[in-house]
């Protein structure tokens, strides 16, 4: 096996040491700093981008929260307005009801007064008629003059009696 030819060991080792030192220097001084630089820049950039994204997300969340607060406020306002309007409507209705009731009551009272007046008048007329009728009836029956005062008295008594009975 050529691997065990001892005379080949020295030249291989010499060139291995030379080439490996060259590689070490090239890597340590040139290649690795470049790759490290690229990686670091990107890692920084990605972190920045993600931070920015997170920031934008929190901003969006704030906006959404504000929007929702405004919406809730508007809804509250609307409800208050509705409640207010309801109250006002109720109050107006109550007032109208009261007015109508009052008007009706007044009318009823007026009607009652009119009825009373008519009744009184009717009664007064009734007394006159009754007295005349009674006087005429008594004169026909008795064939003599009956004093108007007596008749009136008798009628009043009869009316009194009737009113008491009914």
């Amino acid at each position: 096996m050529p691997q065990f030819w001892m005379e080949d060991f020295a030249p291989q080792m010499v060139w291995l040491v030379i080439s490996f030192i060259a590689l070490y220097l090239l890597m340590a001084r040139v290649a690795l700093p470049r790759v490290a630089d690229v990686l670091e820049t990107r890692h920084g950039r990605i972190a920045d981008d993600l931070d920015q994204a997170a920031q934008l997300k929190s901003q969006a969340e704030t906006v959404i929260a504000e929007y929702e607060a405004a919406l809730a406020k508007a809804r509250g306002d609307a409800q208050a307005t509705i409640a207010q309007a309801g109250l006002e409507a109720t109050a107006a209705a109550d007032k109208r009801n009261a007015e109508i009731a009052e008007a009706l009551a007044a009318e009823a009272a007026a009607a009652a007064a009119r009825i009373d007046a008519a009744k009184t008048e009717a009664l007064a007329e009734l007394r006159g008629v009754a007295t005349e009728l009674a006087q005429a009836a008594a004169e026909r029956l008795l064939g003599a003059e009956v004093a108007a005062g007596d008749v009136e008295q008798a009628v009043d008594a009869a009316i009194q009696d009737n009113a008491g009975r009914s």
Binding site: D8, A10, W15, S19, L26, M27, A31, R34, V38
Partner: peptide, 29 residues
């Protein structure tokens, strides 16, 4: 004995390929 050989050439080949690869691929950054 420091005779240059195919072996030595391939050692330097490895050095050159590794270095060029890393330098060229990161040139655009």
């Amino acid at each position: 004995d420091i005779s240059f050989s195919k072996a030595a050439a391939f050692m330097f080949g490895a050095v050159i390929v590794a270095t060029l690869f890393l330098v060229l691929t990161t040139s655009r950054r």
